[in-house]
Design a protein around this nucleic acid. Sequence first.
DNA 1: TAGGCCATCTGGTCCT
DNA 2: AGGACCAGATGGCCTA
Length: 135
Amino acid sequence: MSTGSVASDAEDYETCHRRTARKITCFNTSRYSDEELEDDALEVGIKPERKLSKAHQKDARQTQRNAANARERARMRVLSKAFSRLKTSLPWVPADTKLSKLDTLRLASSYISHLRQLLQEDRFERSFAHPVNLV
DNA sequence: TAGGCCATCTGGTCCT
DNA sequence: AGGACCAGATGGCCTA
């Protein structure tokens, strides 16, 4: 199963900008203050006066964050698709029914219980049936 | 308008 | 080290 084509990533980027007004967190490049970055640099033994490496570090960190965000979006997309598939496997639920994830989980759970009960009844009935090999 | 639901971001933890 | 998974926070959308 492939996830995260270039097109869908671009779409996600757009969606993100459309959906959220949170300028602080959405693909934000100013999440980390210079002080924080400087502390990080000091911690790994990098001289703080090197402005270029500081910028690079900031870039690298942001790039990694963006990649992690994209992976997380893809992961959640897979999860949502799984919920959709689960929903379609539920009987008595029309395809166009709006069902929350929680509802889907609850219905699936009760459907499994129902199926289990049918199975038990079936076994019970079979135990009283005539043995076929007895003529 | 409040509440429910969802998508997304984020940082932490665990695993390979 | 990097990726997967998770839970908390946040903001948008929709409906009663």
